[in-house]
Design a protein around this nucleic acid. Sequence first.
DNA 1: TCAAAAGTGTTAGTGGTACACCCATGC
DNA 2: GCATGGGTGTACCACTAACACTTTTGA
Lengths: 235, 235
Amino acid sequence: MLDKASYDTQPKCLVALDSIIFGFDGDLLKILLVKRGPNLHADTWSLMGGWLNPNENLEQSAERILFELTGLKGVYLEQLYTFGDINRDPIDRTVSVAYFALINIEHYDSKISQAHFAHWFPVSEMPDELLFDHRQMIDLAIQKLRYKAALHPLGFELLPEKFTIPQLQKLYEAIFQTTFDKRNFSRKILSTHLLVKLKEKQKSSKKGAYLYEVNKEKYNSFSNSFLNFVSNPDF
Amino acid sequence: MLDKASYDTQPKCLVALDSIIFGFDGDLLKILLVKRGPNLHADTWSLMGGWLNPNENLEQSAERILFELTGLKGVYLEQLYTFGDINRDPIDRTVSVAYFALINIEHYDSKISQAHFAHWFPVSEMPDELLFDHRQMIDLAIQKLRYKAALHPLGFELLPEKFTIPQLQKLYEAIFQTTFDKRNFSRKILSTHLLVKLKEKQKSSKKGAYLYEVNKEKYNSFSNSFLNFVSNPDF
DNA sequence: TCAAAAGTGTTAGTGGTACACCCATGC
DNA sequence: GCATGGGTGTACCACTAACACTTTTGA
């Protein structure tokens, strides 16, 4: 079965990478979509994607593509799932490795992405028509984001370095499409000791709220243990 | 970037599938490895793998390959991760989609697999040398099996249709390399109401233990909710 | 009758949820 | 001075974890 000749006779296949890019504007959870151009699928919104480069591994290619669109490096990027249905791309058989990315919307360089016809869509207001199986990719990404966020404190990746507890709560409420009791929420978050309270306050409200930042060391060593941020998630 | 010409000029890539096949013999958690033949890598243990077939999607190819080795159909199969490092296969660039499979070791047809030089290795006694990045695949599969088994009742997939609570406990102890209190364990398992107690007893011990079977309906509707089978898993 | 494995109940502690009031400030 | 959003404490309930004895039966 596996001999040298079989390498030569095996049909090869195009390999693409597509990224589901999540952002949070303080109110709604959003996904970044682009209109690909210039010739093909120019009228259809799609995920940001590109081809696997022969001298890059999968994650490097995904990072490069993300950088080309958003100008961002070092963002949270995680492999989601690989899609390989026979006719998912009608032009030629393509296997696509999907990644999901969490980015801080404030860092996002809108200049680059304007050139690519990019737009942030709230997760509840996606266009009806998306390229190929991108709708399926997005649905899976949302599901996985909820799953992970219920068990791991990865929500911070979507916020600025300094943020308030009410901001964090709004984010979780956007992810899970629900509301939480603020007393229980802040107690649960603070009980992890992952947040460091700062002296400064953010004064976007009348009273102002204390800013916090993530204790990076603890966060990194913590990311493999887990807890229930959401008690009875409905997956 | 994405026009028709780009499809023709894009380098294509080999796509393979590899399966990490878990089994449980009542005592140890094991993984099925093969020696590939006849020419290439004949001396190295490896995961069961094969090429993506142009007229199959990813899961269908993985199922076919699994069937060719074990003679089994309809087993629990789940996509694990896609590996694409540049030189993971020194002969030619190959992207490999890894699946993990849970099979009931009693159903396993050893005749077919003898022809493939297959052998069950306890997870704690793997050969030192494995093909390509297969060690990495196995490590990730064990990690994911623990993660999922801690939250979802998927352990049943590794047992016969009828099994006893002590058997199930031994399985979980093998997965997590620890021991559990049997009173707390059985209470937790039974509180899900996923198991139906049968009249029969299994008499492999002196006293004999009651057999149970899975309530399939409940199990299927349950698989998306979750609970902590293991309280403080060390991931 | 003894050894081996199965089966079962209670208690104390922890963590989760529900709930209401005061505080600081801008207008 | 009032409306807005921020911050905090308590009581009850449910779940978890720790722990020991009795039952059955094959040898």
